[in-house]
Design a protein around this nucleic acid. Structure first.
Length: 205
DNA sequence: CCCTGATTCGC
DNA sequence: GCGAATCAGG
């Protein structure tokens, strides 16, 4: 692969959008992130912040949640999966096959019943977000005692992103235990996050 | 360990 | 010009 005008254009666009070199490399294909970085430098657009001779204003302000607004009754959908990066427009990634599970991305649903809801974007329909098997619950409680208590920046694609605690306080962290098979959560949290629709029917009484 | 960008240097 | 290897950091 070579740096055609088109590819360079994509590079420029994504770089200016704040995409990481590896993401850009993934998008372009046929190049490594090193290649992307090298090209970026050769193009002389290393400093993303369009500031000539500028300094670094912000460092990792990026991902901070929209606001600690407790007013808006919106359950946070996804606590920003990957590392710390500003915008995440529309990376064409695998849709993640979610069969007959419940909500695609429940985030702070069941666990905190008294806690306030963080704040996020969408996710209005919260269907069968209740009634988890006692086993699953026990498992979760157990697991949360061993949680790695990762911060937002420490989350990766293979760490459990289940939020624990109150986002508005210091008592907030992410599970961080190893998640598997492309799931966003560890086994225990997957258990409470994705419920078969049959569960409720079963427990109906 | 996962990830980031920055630099170097043989090609 | 290119990018793998390496470096420096989170």
């Amino acid at each position: 692969m070579s740096w055609t005008d088109e590819r360079v254009e994509t590079l420029k666009r994504m770089w200016s959008e704040g995409q990481s070199a590896s993401q850009i490399a993934k998008e372009l294909g046929g190049v490594t992130r090193n290649a992307v970085i090298g090209k970026v430098h050769r193009l002389g657009l290393s400093n993303r912040v369009g500031g000539a001779g500028g300094k670094e204003d912000e460092e990792e302000v990026a991902v901070e949640a929209p606001a600690p607004r407790v007013e808006t009754p919106r359950p946070a959908p996804e606590p920003a999966p990957r590392a710390a990066e500003p915008p995440r427009p529309a990376p064409p990634e695998r849709p993640a096959p979610q069969p007959a599970a419940a909500a695609p991305a429940p985030s702070a649903p069941i666990p905190l019943r008294k806690a306030i809801v963080p704040a996020g974007q969408p996710l209005p329909p919260q269907p069968s977000a209740n009634e988890i098997s006692p086993e699953a619950l026990a498992s979760v409680r157990e697991v949360e005692k061993r949680a790695r208590k990762l911060t937002l920046m420490e989350l990766t694609e293979r760490t459990c992103k289940w939020p624990i605690g109150d986002p508005a306080t210091e008592d907030f962290w992410f599970c961080g235990l190893p998640s598997q098979a492309g799931k966003p959560y560890c086994d225990a949290h997957v258990g409470v996050a994705f419920q078969p629709m049959s569960a409720r029917r079963d427990r109906r009484r």
